[in-house]
Nucleic acid binder design. Structure first.
Lengths: 205, 205
DNA sequence: GTCTATACTACGATAGAC
DNA sequence: GTCTATCGTAGTATAGAC
């Protein structure tokens, strides 16, 4: 499938060097086809970029859908159910952040966060919003004492702890003295993230 | 000062569209000079890029030096001193993340985190390491019960909460329903960050 | 030190063969 | 559907005038 190969390569290149830095010639060549295939299948460089955003959103949503579904039912459950669901969801997000594939995804997404284009709307509608909504619903269930804006802020800050594992990967590795996040290091980070989140969620008002 | 203008423009362009996407012609023109000035002053595009990294490191270090100096002395102080110093330092980091200038800085730094080049070494030695070292020293003072790697992980995760305010700015704004982080929103976020950090640091072992 | 002029390469888009 | 060929533009680097 030429389209699939083009998308995979495009995400890598756009993530690595950005929209302006990536070249359609290079993307096509690395995908084993001619540059004009991009025009034919996606209408041009811009079309390929937007298709890449949709692809990333779908891939991330795929990895999080089971956790999101479980979390949504837990919103109606007990306080403990909701807490455990949020911890699980956050752990899932952290796991995605440590997937090798998410390196190119996150480079793409982070770029859009800083200079949002139409692609950001697609990413937001495709994954981000779904995760955010469940996050907020769970937090308001767990901490009904928090005003809405405080709950929103708490959700964002909780998410930041998972985010740093991907976005500051070079620093994380350097600080921990490893080249890559091996199994035991991942376990350590996820355990600390869980402990931190738990204590934030059970903070006495 | 032509060099200064070139650096300011370069950071903006490199941050916005990356090394490959930025054009020396454009940078020179926006700085009111000719492209060959870049060759003369920095030896070429690559030299300008490295100089931009040094410039960013120095600018960030500038903003954090007072807090870092105070924090270093607090490492020798009481448990409460150390806790307050860490909260202050983290608040300072969050404040930097909400500065308008840090938008271009962070775009540059985040890019280097994902695809480290020689510029990352300069950023790390220039700012990141200094902040990390003080973070870790304070945490080991506050939570001597934590094994070293747990303390390192805690420091990184704490930092992530400040990071998200800059790196996921588009999401932060969308979730909070604002276009920009106004004064009261910043206060809210910093207060929640402080509360979260305090409760992580005082977690009963 | 700062400019103009130029050499050379690579870019995205598109037309047309098959 | 996929290719090659080509057009116009823009990229970095460099040589040389002032």
């Amino acid at each position: 499938m030429v389209q699939h190969a083009l998308l995979e390569t495009a995400i890598d290149r756009f993530g690595r060097v950005g929209f302006e830095g990536a070249s359609t010639r290079d993307i096509a060549h690395a995908s084993g086809t001619a540059m004009s295939s991009i025009t034919y299948h996606f209408g041009g460089k811009q079309g390929l970029y937007l298709a890449a955003a949709d692809y990333i959103a779908a891939a991330m949503a795929d990895r999080l859908t089971p956790a999101l579904t479980m979390a949504r039912t837990a919103c109606e459950g007990t306080h403990e159910d909701a807490t455990e669901a949020l911890l699980q969801l956050l752990d899932n997000v952290a796991a995605v952040m440590m997937l090798p594939e998410s390196a190119t995804w996150s480079a793409f997404v982070v770029r859009e966060q800083q200079n949002p284009t139409e692609a950001f709307d697609r990413l937001y509608a495709g994954v981000i919003q779904r995760v955010v909504d469940v996050f907020i619903a769970l937090i308001t269930r767990i901490r009904p004492d928090l005003p809405r804006r405080e709950a929103l802020a708490t959700g964002l800050l909780l998410f930041g702890q998972a985010l740093v594992l991907r976005v500051c990967r070079a620093t994380v590795c350097r600080v921990l003295g490893t080249d890559t996040l091996d199994e035991s290091t991942q376990t350590l980070l996820r355990a600390r993230l869980r402990a931190n989140a738990l204590c934030i969620l059970s903070e006495t008002p």
